[in-house]
Each structure stands twice: as C-alpha cells, then as structure tokens.
Design a protein around this nucleic acid. Structure first.
Lengths: 109, 109
DNA sequence: TTGACATGCAAGTAAATGCTTGCATATTAT
DNA sequence: ATAATATGCAAGCATTTACTTGCATGTCAA
C-alpha cells in the first residue's frame, strides 16, 4: 500500500468530490460521474485513474461500461497510521501549546 | 478551517516527515528540524509555512528562535469529516464489491 | 560593539499537475 | 451493417510546486 499515492489522491478537491459521489451512489459509470463535474470527460478519467492507483476506487467492467466502486480501506489505513498516532495525547498537546503561548505573552496562572 | 489546505499540506512526504519529527520531539527550532532534512533551510521553511497555513503546526517565537509545535486538531477534523463517514459501512462496501466482482466472473450464489 | 547565529525575503528554475482537444477502439442497438 | 454510445490514448499547454541561491534583518554573546 503506497500511502503517498493515497495522500496525493486526496489532495485534490475534484477527486474528493468524486469519492463523495461514489459514496452517495455506488457503482456509477464514467459518464454518470462526469455529469456532476464541470470539466471534460478526460479530466475526470485522469482523476479517477489516480484514485484507482491509490486503491481508493475499484473498477469493474461491464460490457462497454466502466463501473466505479469506493474502497474505504486506504482511508482506514491513513487513520491508523497517521491520525490515531497524533490523536494520542491530543488534549495534552493542546494544553501544553496553550500554556506555552500564554506564558509567552503574560504570566497568567 | 480550510480542509483543502490540510489535505494539500499532507500530500507531501517531506511535510509528513516534519510532522513526524515534531511528534517525536515538540518545540523544535527551524535549524533543529533542518538537521534531519536533506535540503536547504529555505526549502524546509517553505514546507513549514504550508503546515502552518494548514494549522497543523503552530509557531512560537523565542528571541531569534522559532519554535514549532504540532496541532493535531486538523487531523482530527479530517477524521470526522472524511474517514469516519466512509468507515461507516466499510465492511458492507467491501462485501458488495466482492459480490459484484464474483458475480461478474461466475454465477456463485 | 562587533561577530556569529537564526531566520526572512525574493527571484529564478525544473518538474509535476490539471486540463483540453483530436482521434482511435470497442460495445450495444436499430 | 451501420450508427450511436462508452471509453481509451496521446500530445500540448498553462499553472503550480518544490527547490535553490544570494542577500537582508534581527538577536545574542564575547
């Protein structure tokens, strides 16, 4: 699992919107997805390719139609590898930062 | 909170490494952070600026030294706004996808 | 006060990114 | 068989991104 590809895929608002579309309705075709987007079909294709390479979207061919399915596993991976880790001691970190900031400006107890 | 800036800030491996550095030791100066990185000080500065604009890092000036602190709140925001949402029904989604894939190749019940 | 240290500012550049357009291919429907 | 539909491939282009280098500024210490 290339976590860098996942982060890069998520970095673009259009791609996040595509994920949202697939979340609201699973298995949409390329043209169906294009209808919500204000850009050429090729642009959407290229975004979907990046999502596919990041394993965030899985493709199923059905005749000439290309169906898109959301795969939430990489998102979960980001959670366990990145968010959970920093979440740990979240309140402590904020508390320490706050104290440091306050101590820098005044001597509030 | 500009979630796009957060995603974009996280999209770069160098910036994620900087966050890791700050996670392992809080309140490091710019030069301290530079020691771990294989690029010019200015490059690191620019990365840290993006992290700051995304609110992932908070700065505290102490004389001529610039101390960097990690702020985990935006990460938590990503979790609640993006991951949790897709997490919901994670197993279902996988199950459906699997069924669809199997149904496409054979007629397994 | 002078020199060393920590950082900022800004211009320049190579590579990556997002998008378009034109044409090609494969599948379905009439 | 032919036309319409769904998609792919590839070249081209403008913008953004990551990085460097050179110089300027502010702070601390001898």
């Amino acid at each position: 699992m290339d976590i860098d590809k996942v982060f890069k895929a998520l970095a673009d608002p259009t791609r996040r919107r595509l994920l949202d579309q697939l979340h609201s309705e699973s298995g949409q075709t390329l043209t169906a997805l294009c209808e919500h987007m204000d850009m050429s079909r090729q642009a959407v294709t290229q975004h979907l390719q990046q999502l596919e390479e990041a394993n965030l979207v899985a493709i199923v061919w059905q005749g000439r139609e290309k169906l898109h399915y959301l795969n939430p596993v990489p998102l979960h991976e980001i959670y366990t590898r990145w968010i959970e880790k920093f979440e740990h001691g979240r309140l402590d970190a904020l508390h320490n930062l706050k104290q440091r900031l306050e101590g820098d400006d005044n001597d509030k107890t």
